[in-house]
Simulated assay, not measured.
Amino acid sequence: MSERDDEGREFDLKWAEGAAHKEPSARARMLAARWKENPPGPVPFRAEPEHRGSGGHHRPWVSTVLVLGCVVAVILLLGYADFGRY
């Protein structure tokens, strides 16, 4: 490509980016047409998961107790390992 072609291409890009009105993408046009006939319902910020492990009877404190129990077990194990050295 010659330098003159580069200048013309750069001008075209600047002209296109500086346009006052930009046409929406094909997907945006498709969704706008679909939603005009059938608007989407409200969506919560954080949807509830459909499957929650053991039958949906999950309690939030169970994982906390499990993690803290593992931490205490590791601390005790390391403490007994160091205690045997002395």
Rank of each mutant, 00 (worst) to 15 (best):
M1A: 10
S2H: 07
E3Y: 06
E3T: 09
R4A: 12
R4V: 08
D5Q: 14
D6V: 14
D6C: 08
E7Y: 11
R9T: 04
F11L: 13
F11Y: 12
F11G: 06
D12F: 02
D12L: 08
L13D: 10
L13I: 15
K14F: 11
K14G: 10
K14L: 13
K14Q: 12
A16H: 08
E17K: 07
E17P: 00
G18W: 01
A20D: 10
A20F: 10
K22V: 13
P24W: 05
P24F: 04
S25V: 03
R27H: 10
R27G: 12
A28D: 15
R29P: 00
L31C: 09
L31P: 01
L31R: 13
A32L: 03
A32P: 00
A32T: 03
A32S: 10
A33R: 10
W35R: 14
W35V: 07
K36Y: 11
E37C: 12
E37W: 12
N38E: 07
N38V: 13
P39V: 05
P39H: 08
P39W: 05
G41I: 08
P42V: 04
P42C: 03
V43N: 02
P44K: 11
P44L: 05
F45V: 15
F45K: 15
F45T: 12
R46G: 03
R46V: 14
R46T: 08
R46F: 13
A47E: 11
E48C: 08
P49E: 07
E50D: 13
R52M: 14
R52H: 14
G53R: 14
S54T: 11
S54P: 06
G55L: 02
G56K: 05
G56R: 02
G56T: 07
G56H: 06
H57I: 05
H57T: 13
H58M: 14
R59M: 08
W61R: 13
W61P: 00
S63V: 11
S63M: 13
T64F: 10
T64Q: 15
V65Y: 06
L66K: 08
V67C: 05
L68Q: 09
L68V: 12
C70G: 15
V71H: 02
V72L: 12
A73V: 03
A73Y: 03
A73W: 05
V74E: 03
V74A: 09
I75D: 04
L77G: 05
L77V: 02
L77W: 07
L77F: 06
L78Q: 00
G79I: 00
G79Q: 00
G79Y: 00
Y80H: 04
Y80K: 03
D82H: 00
D82I: 01
D82A: 04
D82F: 00
F83L: 05
G84A: 07
G84E: 02
Y86E: 07
Y86C: 04
Y86S: 05
Y86P: 00
Y86F: 09
